[in-house]
Design a protein around this nucleic acid. Structure first.
Lengths: 211, 211
DNA sequence: TAGATTGTTAATCGATTAACAATC
DNA sequence: TAGATTGTTAATCGATTAACAATC
């Protein structure tokens, strides 16, 4: 078992996929699975699957494979999904609301505790029981409430300011949907979701059909 | 200059970043830039920048560097952004609406030509001048209108059916926001945006602070 | 011309795959 | 015990970085 800091990003990005596959298997009451069977299911090689899992410890058993339920739980713990994350959403337009809905209905463990905006038309409305507050009070809110994750759903032009304010408020991570690269201090985890980059990649592949 | 099909995915994912940086430079009326300066700006090594760009041709000039405006245009053409893409959005809830707004206001070249949903409360409403139609008529719509990109903003359970219908309707690419891996035929480009995977990766990094 | 900087080859690094002894 | 399958080491592959001759 390696040091946690040594796990490569490539491996970390595959963990959710393993977990999703295991969840499906649990639904089908499958009790155990071999790396070969899992490979057929999700497309990674059996060798890669065994390598990946062994970064975190020997979860399998020779001659048997992996216990589906057990591995699911283990991967969840590795991913930090045994804890709760309190989140604020900054920018409560369509995208902010979509994320609030998603988190509320589908992701126990990720709890929206506050929503903010500068638009007077949005301030005061309620999204899944969370009232949208004036962005002006975000700093105060973060002082009074421990918040783990700040979600930026604002325009490009305000994204960096929002990020700074979130960092001052001691969030542990930022999930950024604004179409720019923001800067945060080293101790804050940052996950950029560049939807426009993703759409551009799709346009590239459409324009350059394979073979 | 390599065959277009030989460009690695890693390179393609970096192209949007180059383009964004060049756009910023154009705003600041910068005329030329060296790989070293660009490196300082976006964090890739100068060597990688030169390697990346040379996959597509020699855009630079020894002793001078790269012409900002020219390179911006070239990269746009490589990325296929000199053409228009007609898109339909299937699932017109918050996320579908957020994407419709985004495309309408920020991305000339990506045009929403139709929105669809099964929810009677959404059918008939207008988003940026596009009326949400009954999902029942999607097949017909795709027969009568050439559509390049299908965007899936539905629930997990209907995502694969929607993908099948879009493929039957001869879309060239699918942008999938449903939290599952859908299957499409080889000739259709597929871009999955797994927001939950992204949030999970963030949770991982929060749970495992570096050193 | 001299200096700067590319284009490109070679070296390095890291990630993936193959192989197989260990062992359930 | 025999068969199956892991854990783990070694080999391969691909991507990144370094180096430098070409050349503007």
């Amino acid at each position: 078992m390696k040091e946690s800091g040594k796990i490569s990003n490539a491996v970390i990005r595959r963990l959710p996929r393993y977990r999703r596959a295991l969840k499906e298997l649990m639904k089908k009451d499958v009790e155990r699975i071999s790396s070969n069977e899992l490979s057929a299911l999700i497309g990674y090689t059996a060798s890669q699957i065994r390598q990946d899992l062994n970064n975190f410890g020997g979860f399998g058993q020779q001659g048997y494979g992996y216990n589906v339920q057990g591995l699911y739980t283990q991967i969840g713990m590795i991913m930090g999904l045994d804890k709760d994350y309190k989140m604020v959403i900054v920018g409560s337009g369509n995208l902010g609301q979509a994320i609030a809905n998603y988190a509320t209905y589908y992701r126990a463990g990720f709890v929206v505790v506050g929503m903010f905006d500068v638009n007077p038309k949005l301030i005061g409305i309620s999204i899944n029981g969370i009232e949208v507050q004036d962005y002006e009070v975000l700093g105060e809110f973060l002082k009074e409430n421990k918040v783990d994750i700040g979600i930026i759903c604002t325009t490009k032009s305000s994204a960096q300011n929002v990020a700074d304010k979130l960092c001052q408020g001691n969030v542990k991570g930022i999930w950024n949907f604004a179409p720019m690269d923001i800067e945060v201090s080293e101790d804050v985890a940052l996950e950029n979701v560049h939807l426009s980059d993703s759409l551009n990649a799709l346009a590239y592949y459409i324009s350059h059909p394979m073979q």
